[in-house]
Design a protein around this nucleic acid. Structure first.
Length: 425
RNA sequence: GGAGAAGUGGCCGAGUUGGCUGAAGGCGCACGCCUGCUAAGCGUGUAACGGGUGUUAAGCUCGUUCGAGAGUUCGAAUCUCUCCUUCUCCGCCA
C-alpha cells in the first residue's frame, strides 16, 4: 500500500509511476474519494464533539433530579444524524481503502522503464553454456527414462500439473533443498524457519496477494485459509503488527516450504515437466531491512541466491525487471535465469525483490529508531534461494550425459549418500 | 467435538448499580534532582491512528480506539448478540 500522504500531496508522482507500469488505474478516483471523505469526517466529528460536550450536562441534571428532556430530544437528533453520516463515511472509506489496496508499488528510480519482459536488461552472466556433443534432452524425458519422475501417476492421483518422484530423483530434490538451506543459514546469516503452509486472509493481504490476486490462490473450502503460493507470505507476516528495535535489523529468515499456485491464465504454457506445477518446493529468503540499507540488502540477497547455482556450477544470467514487468508489491526486482540445455533457453529460477515499505505499511511492520520517538516502517525483501523444483530441472538438464545417464554435481554428493551417477537399469 | 474461564495502555493490573475513566495503581522506560559510589530516594513525563490549523516541522485543537463486529441508549470498557483468540477439564487423534 502506498502512503496516503503521498497520494494526497503528490498525486502526480503516483500517476507517473502507474504510467510507467502500464497500469490503467486513475488517480483522480482516489482524489475524489478523499475529498468526500474529509468533508464527511469534518461534519461527523463536529457532531460527535457536540455529543461529548452535552453528555455530562445531561448526567448532571439527572443527578440533581432536574428535567433534561430538551437536551435528550436534541441529542436524539444529533445521534441519528451521526449514525447516518457514519454509515456513509464507512462506505467511502471502504471504497478508498479498496482502491489503495489495488494500487501497485512505485518503482525505484533505478528500475529501467519498459513495457514487457522483452525490455528487461541482462545485467551479467555467470559461467558458460555447457558444450554438449549430443542433442540434449529435456528434463522430463531424462527423469522419466531414469525412473525418477512419473507424471502419469500424478495425473491419476490428482490431476495435471503435478508430479511424483522416486528414488534418486526424490532424494536429489531433498539434497538440493538441504544445500540451499545449509548455504543460506551458514554462509549468509539466515535463520531457518518452518512456518504454516496455509495462512489466513489477513496475511495474504499483508503481503499483497489479496485482494487482487485471489484467483491465483488455492483456498481451503469452508475455511478462510489459503495455501501459500510462496513462503514470503508467512515469513513476512511474522512481524505483522509488530515493532522491532532498530538494532535488530536486518532480520533474515529462510524457509523450505511447498508452494501452491493455481496457475490461472497460464493454460498451454509449460504443460510438460516440472517447470510450472500447482505444487512445488522453494527455499525462500525474507529480509526486514532498515530503509537506508534495503537496496544494499537486495544486492546481498541476489548474491545469496546466485551462490547456489555457483556451487552447482550451472550457467545463469541476472536480469533487472523493467517497470512494466515487475510484480505488484515490488519496488525493484532482479530475476536469476538459469540455462536449460534441453529447452535451449534461460528460465527464471529466482526472483529477488525489494518491496520498500509497501508491504510493511499493509502488514503494519515497524521499527523503533534508536535516536527518535517516531516509529518507522521497515523495508521488506523477498527472494527465492532457490526454487527447488526448477533447480532440479536445471541439474538434470545440465548434468545429463550422452548415454542418457546423469552425473551428480560435486556439491550435492555429500547429500546423496555416495551416489555419483544415475544410470538406466 | 463437549463443559467452563478469560481477553483493558510496552508489561502487570483496577474498573461490571452505564456518564465526571484514555482509562487508578504498580512495573518498565526517558529526562531531571539528590546522593561520594556500581544501590536507594525524589520529581516530571511516558499510546496509536485520523480530521482541522501549520513550512509534507513543532505546537494547538477535535475525533476514534478497553480482542473484532453488530445492537440497546441522549450516552457503553461497563448491558445484549455473533465471531476470533488464549487457558483449564473431558473425549478423540498423529
Amino acid at each position: 500500500m502506498l502512503d496516503l500522504k503521498l497520494m494526497q500531496k503528490n498525486p502526480e508522482i503516483v500517476r507517473e509511476s502507474l504510467k510507467k507500469r502500464g497500469s490503467k488505474i486513475d488517480v483522480q478516483e482516489f482524489t475524489d474519494l478523499d475529498d468526500t471523505r474529509r468533508k464527511l469526517i469534518a461534519e461527523v466529528e463536529a457532531l460527535k464533539a457536540e455529543k461529548n460536550a452535552v453528555g455530562p450536562e445531561i448526567a448532571k441534571r439527572k443527578k440533581a433530579g432536574k428535567d433534561a428532556s430538551d437536551l435528550l430530544e436534541k441529542m436524539g437528533e444529533v445521534s441519528q444524524r451521526t449514525k447516518l453520516l457514519d454509515t456513509e463515511l464507512s462506505k467511502i472509506e471502504a471504497a478508498q481503502n479498496n482502491w489503495m489496496m489495488t494500487v501497485p508499488n512505485i518503482p525505484h528510480e533505478s528500475v529501467p522503464v519498459g513495457a514487457s519482459e522483452d525490455d528487461n536488461p541482462v545485467l551479467r552472466y555467470w559461467g558458460e553454456k555447457p558444450e554438449l556433443n549430443f542433442a540434449p534432452k529435456e528434463h522430463w524425458e531424462i527423469g522419466t527414462a531414469l525412473g525418477g519422475l512419473d507424471f502419469e501417476c500424478a495425473a491419476k492421483l490428482t490431476g495435471s500439473r503435478f508430479s511424483v518422484s522416486y528414488g534418486w530423483c526424490a532424494r536429489l530434490e531433498r539434497a538440493l533443498a538441504q544445500l540451499m538451506l545449509d548455504t543460506q543459514t551458514s554462509m549468509h546469516g539466515y535463520t531457518e524457519v518452518v512456518p504454516p503452509f496455509m495462512v489466513n486472509r489477513k496475511s495474504m493481504t499483508g503481503t499483497g496477494q489479496l485482494p487482487k490476486f485471489e484467483e491465483d490462490l488455492f483456498k481451503l473450502d469452508g475455511t478462510d485459509y489459503f495455501l501459500i503460493p510462496t513462503a514470503e507470505v508467512p515469513l513476512t507476516n511474522i512481524y505483522a503488527d509488530e515493532v522491532v528495535d532498530e538494532a535488530r535489523l536486518p532480520i533474515k529468515f529462510c524457509a523450505h516450504t511447498p508452494c501452491f499456485r493455481s496457475e490461472a491464465g497460464s493454460y498451454g504454457k509449460d504443460t510438460k515437466g516440472l517447470i510450472r506445477q500447482h505444487q512445488f518446493h522453494k527455499v525462500e529468503m525474507v529480509n526486514f531491512a532498515h530503509p537506508d540499507k534495503s537496496y544494499e540488502a537486495l544486492e546481498n540477497m541476489t548474491a545469496a541466491a546466485e551462490k547456489i547455482l555457483q556451487l552447482l556450477n550451472i550457467h545463469y544470467r541476472v536480469i533487472a525487471l523493467c517497470t512494466g514487468d515487475m510484480g505488484f508489491g515490488a519496488a525493484k526486482t532482479y530475476d536469476i535465469e538459469v540455462w536449460l540445455p534441453g529447452q535451449d533457453a534461460y528460465r527464471e529460477i529466482s526472483s529477488c525483490s525489494n518491496c520498500g515499505d509497501f508491504q510493511a505499511r499493509r502488514a503494519n511492520i515497524k521499527f523503533q529508531p534508536a535516536d527518535s520517538k517516531k516509529k518507522q516502517f521497515v523495508h521488506t525483501l523477498n527472494g527465492s534461494g532457490l526454487a527447488v523444483g526448477r533447480c532440479l530441472v536445471a541439474v538434470i538438464e545440465n548434468y545429463q550425459q550422452a548415454d542418457g545417464s546423469l552425473v551428480i554435481p560435486e556439491a550435492l554428493k555429500p547429500y546423496m549418500g555416495g551416489l555419483e551417477k544415475v544410470e538406466s537399469e
